[in-house]
Design a binder for these strands. Structure first.
Lengths: 224, 224
DNA sequence: AACGTAAACGGAGAACTCTCCGCTTCACAA
DNA sequence: TTGTGAAGCGGAGAGTTCTCCGTTTACGTT
């Protein structure tokens, strides 16, 4: 049961100003990350022991644990890059993901983008979330949640709980659920995307603009 | 990494006709369950090692693993009773949970009932789901999903994917999320229940019956 | 350049999880 | 009863996770 966790250099929270990382520490961090990427290419992170990572990186196990806390910490670090890219695009990118589009569109664009990334890095996401025991403590989760909550508050000013709604929109995109849907039930990205579209549409129609059901989602990444 | 799992005597799937359990096996199963309940009274299952359970039950570790596979199997077995009660009430109980009420009401009643039970046994649910690694393989999950999917298909015959929608309604009730909401964010059962009400209402209004926003959820178990 | 200290390292080892497989027990039948 | 095969048992041990703490290293200061 992991207890430590430094979250040092600057992963997800995206806003830091800490004492600065020592050169040897940075070097080791990079070595560990690189070694892990190498191992991941052969089999999923869940099946790689951290001893193995340490050996491949040429450091002691203690160092791995010091830097990353546990396997899920390592997974988060590996996800950092795409997380930053995602945050960048919804915070400062162009519409419909970034500012400029109406809230319903931004919400849907975000969910689609998140889904797309999730499917692209499912194994890592799984490793990060599983064993976490709570991915919700991550800066990443709360950033996503806050983003959605803001848009939802814009969408429906009538006073319901945007925080909970954000959780509810993110929940169907939990890695283990999506893994089950795609890998066991055979669902495609398009199907899940359509479901999300439906949900957002229903939420939008709350103030009942007529909601002409039947055209679900149109803008999805391709799928065979 | 657990591999076995017998699911023998008759837990969740609710429909079995197997060779019958041997007397000594049944006795041991009961001893293990009883011992676990005793230990759980003192601290959460996550912090109890299965060696400890075995010792308290007076059996070998091997026996614990044979019967329950792993910690989450044990948790599922412990949850069996309330699971059966829940299934009983939505399958054969009176409205609005059981047959007889309109689908939207049954859906909401089910979600509220599930939430109520979840909060009552949060720690066990957490232990069952965490480490599972996929609570979705449980007979219980697919029963719930199927139930909701049926009702959703009735609610909105227009052809969208009731299976996915069922997942999406169940997802916000994932144990780790709800734990975070209640124990860390301080949300109450009523708040979560209201959110669920909103969601179901939005889904109902899909065919746009006017949806007079603002009366959210009315029928909730009490909360201070 | 040498120093001092805060930070980082690493590996031994404690604690667990889970498996393997020879031995024991049950239940049914003769 | 006694025999017999299937089912169940249990504990040794392999493989992991994670911690602890004495040793080493980096780097601002003198």
């Amino acid at each position: 049961m992991p207890r430590t966790r430094r979250g040092r250099p600057g992963p997800l929270p995206l806003l830091d100003a800490e004492p600065a990382e020592r050169a040897d520490a940075a070097r080791n961090r990079r070595k560990i990350l690189a070694a892990t990427r190498g191992l991941i290419a052969r089999r999923p992170l869940e099946r790689i022991s951290l001893d193995e990572v340490a050996e491949a990186a040429g450091v002691g196990v203690g160092t791995v644990y010091r830097r990353f806390g546990d396997r899920s910490g390592l997974a988060y670090a590996l996800l950092d890059e795409s997380e930053r890219a995602l945050q960048e695009s919804f915070l400062r990118g162009g519409p419909p993901l970034g500012p400029g589009a109406p809230p319903a569109e931004r919400i849907l664009a975000f969910l689609h983008a998140y889904l797309h990334r999730l499917l692209g890095e499912l194994d890592l996401m799984l490793a990060a979330e599983t064993a976490a025991p709570n991915g919700r403590h991550t800066g990443a989760y709360s950033t996503h949640r806050a983003h959605l909550a803001t848009l939802l508050a814009e969408l429906r000013p009538e006073g319901d709980d945007p925080g909970w709604l954000a959780d509810a929109l993110l929940a169907p995109l939990a890695a283990p659920l999506v893994r089950h849907q795609t890998r066991e039930l055979g669902m495609t990205e398009a199907q899940i995307g359509a479901g999300l579209g439906l949900l957002v549409q229903a939420l939008t129609a709350g103030s009942c603009a007529g909601a002409p059901r039947g055209q679900a989602a149109g803008d999805m990444p391709p799928e065979p």
